[in-house]
Write a protein that binds this DNA or RNA. Structure first.
Length: 271
DNA sequence: ACGAAGCCCTGCAAGC
DNA sequence: TGCTTGCAGGGCTTCG
């Protein structure tokens, strides 16, 4: 389940293999992903050079000479580099064959991922055009969160996982950041001070940055498709630890469901 | 406009 | 052993 740190790691890992290469062929074996893969994909992208691979939230953007590929990995998606004649396995849905005789392959068992096309600037695509900040920029801070929160009554966990508030904070990191900031996941956002939001914003950045740093060393092998998730598990303090003792105070961590998402918190440390 | 539920999908684990 | 059931989750979409 790639979260923002993992997507960023993937972006960095792919950059040397796809940058400045030309798209020679696109093979779509399964077009029924989150959205149907555009039938015209190969026609519009073929023979174009990949100028840049960037990221917006959890979306990967491959900017070509004209237009861009937008790729999302959903829950179970992987992108790996293979020799162009590499055997095809189950769930290998889309291949981008490149001029360096390599193939960028999207594998996604659950098909929550997506491959989309944008004619112009991909940031203007309907999915990306709303203005919401990246969590690792200065635009995302306690004051920003506090301001938006004043008119809202939703729970803080839903709030920070809303991609129109801040993009790329998934279930795992939301739980971790709330734990570090000592904020109860069900607390109404209009009942949180600016100082606490400041703390929360800094912990979101901290946990994402730490995971990116980790990902850089453990998710590097894109050539063998050896991109096992799970590297972050060792450092998680609450996620997946319901019923176990809190690492700060030893109180038994509580597990609840919040918006259909499993949510673990410490009833003593988080208020 | 907001908040919450629904939905897409497969693999895996638990229960019978 | 082989079913069935439930859960996992990103994030857009629909409903209230």
């Amino acid at each position: 389940m790639p979260e923002l740190p993992e997507v960023e790691t993937i972006r960095r890992g792919l950059e040397p293999h796809v940058g400045q290469q030309t798209v020679q062929k696109i093979i779509v074996r399964e077009s029924r992903l989150r959205w149907t893969v555009p039938a015209q994909l190969e026609k519009v992208a073929k023979s174009q050079r990949i100028q840049q691979i960037s990221r917006r939230g959890k979306y990967l953007l491959l900017r070509l000479d004209k237009g861009a590929l937008i790729i999302h990995l959903g829950m179970s998606g992987r992108l790996c580099i293979f020799p162009e004649d590499h055997p095809v396995a189950k769930h290998d849905h889309v291949d981008f064959v490149l001029s360096n005789k390599r193939c960028l392959r999207l594998t996604d068992p659950r098909r929550f991922g997506a491959v989309l096309w944008s004619d112009g600037d991909p940031l203007l695509h309907p999915l990306l055009s709303d203005l919401w900040p990246e969590p690792l920029t200065d635009d995302f801070n306690g004051g920003y969160l506090f301001k938006l929160a004043q008119k809202r009554t939703t729970t803080v966990k839903s709030f920070i996982m809303d991609s129109h508030i801040v993009v790329g904070v998934g279930n795992i990191y939301a739980a971790e950041a709330l734990f570090q900031a000592g904020i109860h996941p069900k607390r109404a956002v209009n009942r949180i001070s600016q100082a606490r939001f400041k703390l929360l914003a800094s912990h979101i950045k901290k946990v994402l940055n730490a995971a990116i740093k980790q990902g850089g060393t453990t998710l590097r092998d894109f050539l063998n498709g050896d991109s096992k998730p799970g590297y972050f598990k060792q450092k998680l303090q609450v996620y997946g630890r319901g019923g176990l003792p809190c690492m700060k105070c030893a109180t038994v961590l509580r597990e609840i469901r919040l918006n259909q998402r499993s949510t673990v918190y410490c009833p003593h440390c988080q208020v």
